[in-house]
């Protein structure tokens, strides 16, 4: 078994192990931290699809994260008040069931991904980075200035939404939900990465003109990848809002886009489990350094800088060596 596979198992089994042991030791806070890692990792898996496989450096993934969050906030608040979300052209009522909310989060972030992707993919390289960042900021300011759903103050979700047969208010139960969603996304990512679609997408990252000249429309290909990526990150946003029982424009802020990118790059771009490792390290640093100093982000900055400058390939690159050749 090679080291990459070993590391995958270590992360994949380590996370539920930590949550399980914390449950036995009655440390609900640690369970919640593990849940946070799973959810943030999920957001990173989403970005990794666009960034790692497709080479699309999106600095606007907070949009989808936030849309997922607002799907929860809006539907749950209407469910609490027994008012419909909209009545025309068809009626949508509020909901407090996670699967129903996830569906809405998926559809909404797919539409947003389609719109932002369709415009941003008209360009490439550094333009793409700036444009995705700008659209992210647009969504942020819109959320702040639109008063119907709390504006700058955001929305509180008084009772965590429900999942059939589980009591989501119990930290471990909610961890199980989040972890299972993460596993599904990981499975999806690993299948897509070696599929015909993934092969072509991977090729666009390396040589766009070559891919066009074998008869593949790269714009459509990249747009599909971008939407898929948006959906996964949107789903993560929905879970995150439920974790915190709160959603606000800060979920849409550009720093969230940056953090999601950190998970991916700290872990190792393009590697299946890397965003989860990146998220885990991020959460641990946040807890540990956050306890040492109020200004822990200085240290985060220094570590990040060191990783970019000296440890290319992220933690996965350091531990498991260079990425295996695709497929």
């Amino acid at each position: 078994m090679n080291r990459e596979l070993l590391l995958n198992f270590a992360i994949g089994l380590g996370l539920p192990l930590v949550a399980g042991v914390a449950l036995l030791l009655d440390e609900p806070f640690v369970v919640t931290l593990a849940t946070r890692v799973a959810i943030l990792g999920l957001a990173g898996v989403g970005l990794n699809l666009a960034l790692g496989l497709g080479g699309l450096v999106s600095f606007g993934h907070a949009v989808f994260f936030g849309i997922g969050g607002y799907a929860v906030g809006v539907l749950a608040s209407h469910a609490q008040l027994y008012t419909p979300v909209m009545t025309w052209p068809f009626e949508i009522s509020g909901s407090s069931s996670m699967p129903a909310i996830w569906l809405v989060a998926i559809v909404a972030s797919a539409l947003a991904g389609l719109l932002i992707g369709a415009l941003s993919l008209r360009t490439s390289g550094v333009y793409f980075i700036m444009i995705t960042l700008a659209f992210g900021q647009m969504a942020y300011y819109f959320a702040i200035s639109w008063p119907a759903y709390g504006g700058e103050d955001g929305l509180s979700i008084y009772v965590r939404n429900s999942f059939p047969r589980l009591n989501t208010l119990v930290p471990f139960d909610f961890f199980v939900v989040a972890y299972c969603v993460l596993l599904c996304a990981i499975l999806l990512f690993s299948r897509v990465a070696i599929s015909p679609f993934g092969l072509a997408l991977n090729a666009t990252r390396q040589n766009l003109a070559r891919v066009q000249s074998v008869g593949i429309e790269t714009y459509r290909l990249q747009l599909t990848a971008f939407v898929l990526s948006a959906v996964i990150t949107g789903l993560a946003g929905a879970l995150y809002a439920d974790l915190n029982r709160y959603v606000s424009p800060s979920m849409l802020s550009w720093t969230i886009s940056g953090e999601i990118m950190i998970f991916v790059i700290l872990g190792g771009v393009g590697r299946t489990w890397a965003p989860v490792l990146g998220a885990a390290v991020f959460v641990i640093l946040e807890q540990w350094l956050g306890g040492v100093s109020e200004y822990w982000q200085i240290f985060l900055g220094v570590i990040l800088l060191a990783v970019v400058l000296f440890a290319r390939g992220g933690l996965y690159g350091m531990i498991a060596g260079e990425a295996r050749h695709h497929g």
């Binding site: 450096v57 390289g125 990118m261 950190i262 985060l300 900055g301 990040l304 970019v308 400058l309």
Partner: peptide, 13 residues
């Protein structure tokens, strides 16, 4: 550009 974005993001922090 990815490395540049990340390194300068680290500088912001």
């Amino acid at each position: 550009h990815l490395d540049q974005v990340l390194a300068t993001f680290a500088l912001i922090l």
